[in-house]
Amino acid sequence: MKTAVIDLGTNTFHLIIAEQHANELHVIYKTNQPVKLGEDITANNLIIPAAFKRGITCLQEFRAELDKHEVDIIKATATSGVRSAKNGLDFVEAAKKHANIEIDIIDGDEEAQYIYEGVKWSGAIKGKSLIMDIGGGSTEFILCDEETLVWKKSYNIGAARLMQRFFKSDPINTSDQKSITDHLDEELKALKVICSAYKPKTLIGSAGAFETFAGMLSPKIDIAKISTANISLPAYTELASTLIKATHDERANMKGLIPLRVDMIVMASILTNYILDEFDIKKIKLSTYDLKMGVLQSLKV
Rank of each mutant, 00 (worst) to 15 (best):
D185Q: 13
D185Y: 04
D185I: 05
D185C: 02
E186G: 00
E186Y: 03
E186V: 00
E186K: 13
E186N: 08
E187Q: 15
E187C: 10
E187L: 07
E187F: 03
E187Y: 04
E187D: 02
L188F: 07
L188Y: 06
L188I: 09
L188E: 07
K189I: 14
K189A: 12
K189C: 05
K189L: 14
K189M: 13
K189N: 04
K189G: 00
K189E: 13
A190R: 03
A190H: 10
A190W: 04
L191C: 06
L191Q: 08
L191W: 07
L191G: 01
L191V: 04
L191F: 07
L191P: 01
K192N: 12
K192W: 08
K192H: 10
K192T: 10
K192L: 13
K192Q: 12
K192P: 01
K192I: 08
K192C: 05
K192R: 15
V193E: 14
V193M: 10
V193W: 07
V193N: 07
I194S: 06
I194C: 06
I194Y: 02
I194G: 02
I194K: 11
C195G: 02
C195S: 08
C195P: 01
S196W: 09
S196M: 10
S196K: 12
S196H: 15
S196G: 14
S196T: 04
A197T: 14
A197P: 00
Y198L: 09
Y198C: 00
Y198H: 02
Y198R: 01
Y198M: 04
K199L: 14
K199D: 06
K199A: 11
K199Y: 08
P200E: 13
P200R: 10
P200Q: 13
P200V: 11
P200G: 07
K201W: 04
K201I: 10
K201A: 15
K201V: 06
K201H: 12
K201M: 15
T202P: 01
T202L: 01
T202G: 02
T202I: 14
T202H: 03
T202R: 02
L203P: 01
L203M: 09
L203W: 15
L203R: 02
L203I: 10
I204R: 05
I204Y: 08
G205V: 11
G205L: 12
G205A: 15
S206Q: 13
S206M: 10
A207R: 04
G208V: 11
G208Q: 10
A209Y: 05
A209E: 05
A209Q: 06
A209D: 03
F210R: 12
F210H: 11
F210I: 12
F210C: 13
F210D: 06
E211C: 15
E211A: 15
E211I: 15
E211S: 15
T212D: 00
T212N: 08
T212W: 00
F213Q: 03
F213P: 01
F213D: 01
F213H: 01
A214T: 14
A214K: 13
A214W: 00
A214E: 03
G215L: 03
G215P: 04
G215Y: 03
G215K: 10
G215N: 15
G215M: 04
M216W: 14
M216P: 03
M216S: 11
M216G: 08
M216A: 09
M216T: 06
L217V: 06
L217Y: 03
L217Q: 03
L217F: 06
L217I: 13
